[in-house]
């Protein structure tokens, strides 16, 4: 550098500090996550649940659809039935593993779709503001006006059953909340000076959105979306329970809970198993998103 400047410059602070080490943002997130044992445990649990659903055909000891009148409603640990049997004598463990496939699909796919669509709407609404914002957000408010379960039931009822329709229903239900979170985050970022600084360089709106806005909106939206996974699973189970989702005999946690309901006085423990699966999975997802939120929180 030129002498004139070097001459005038005071040493920039903490250049000499030996403890200051360079670490990327995600590196920092990992550092904080590393010691958060609850979150790590839940992540491991989720991976386990996902793997067991993926590998259900290899893991399941029996055919989940093969009923046996002789072995109806056996208790947990009866002979070779590790988790007992249901009201048609089908192996609970196998059904649980297979049911996880549908339930996880219902939990994850609609959330991903809704995050992309709702996030896009939210960012556009938040960045452009005024009339665009009014148009998008008021439309979202219409959907918001109904309780999510009621909305899901209504859409599902008009679309009819089936896995695809159920996913579509859930996506529609999840878009408004994600859109709202994305919009709030975007309008906060939009008013920050660094966006003005970017505009002052003559950058196009697209460039600013991608370089400066999305990256800052992403973490709150992702954290929020991860809480929706459990909600989506529960909603899906609820729809199946009401007979609006997948139809019997497909193995699905919600559907299993629904059909076993009549047997609750006969085999209360077995009847509760699908419910426990839903509960554990959704709590795990919730705790992970809590942990993520803390780990991603940068004190600027």
């Amino acid at each position: 550098m030129t002498d004139a400047v070097a001459n005038s410059l005071a040493v920039a602070p903490s250049q000499s500090a030996p403890t200051a080490r360079v670490r990327s943002y995600w590196g920092g997130v990992w550092q904080r996550l590393r010691y958060d044992y609850v979150t790590l445990f839940c992540i491991a649990l989720i991976i386990l649940i996902v793997l067991s659903a993926v590998f259900a055909p290899w893991l399941a000891p029996f055919d989940p659809y093969k009923s046996s009148m002789a072995n109806r409603l056996r208790p947990i640990g009866y002979k070779q039935f590790l988790l007992g049997t249901d009201e048609q004598g089908r192996d609970m463990l196998s059904r649980l593993l297979y049911g996880g496939r549908v339930s996880l699909l219902m939990g994850i796919v609609p959330v991903i779709l809704a995050t992309v669509i709702g996030g896009l709407f939210g960012v556009v609404a938040g960045y452009y503001g005024r009339k665009v914002n009014m148009g998008i957000m008021r439309t979202m408010d219409i959907f918001f006006a109904f309780p999510s379960v009621l909305l899901a039931v209504a859409i599902s009822g008009s679309l009819g059953g089936g896995i695809t329709n159920q996913m579509l229903t859930l996506t529609v239900v999840l878009i408004p909340p994600i859109c709202r979170v994305a919009e709030t985050a975007t309008s906060q970022v939009r008013n920050m000076d660094f966006v003005d600084a970017a505009r002052a360089t003559g950058a196009s709106t697209t460039s600013i959105l991608f370089t400066h806005v999305l990256i800052n909106v992403m973490s709150p939206v992702l954290v929020y979306a991860s809480t929706l996974v459990s909600i989506s699973i529960i909603l899906a189970s609820g729809l199946s329970f009401l007979g609006l989702g997948v139809s019997p005999p497909t193995a699905d946690w919600g559907l299993m809970l629904s059909t076993l309901r009549q047997s609750i006085y006969v085999q209360p423990l077995v009847s509760a198993i699908p419910g426990v699966a839903i509960l554990v999975t959704s709590i795990a997802f919730n705790l992970v998103s809590d942990g993520l939120r803390q780990a991603m929180d940068v004190k600027a």
């Binding site: 943002y25 000076d193 003005d196 600084a197 370089t211 990256i215």
Partner: peptide, 13 residues
């Protein structure tokens, strides 16, 4: 801009 938390993009090196 005035030095504050908002003048630099927190996610960019």
């Amino acid at each position: 801009f005035q030095d504050s938390y908002s003048s630099l993009n927190p996610r960019l090196p």
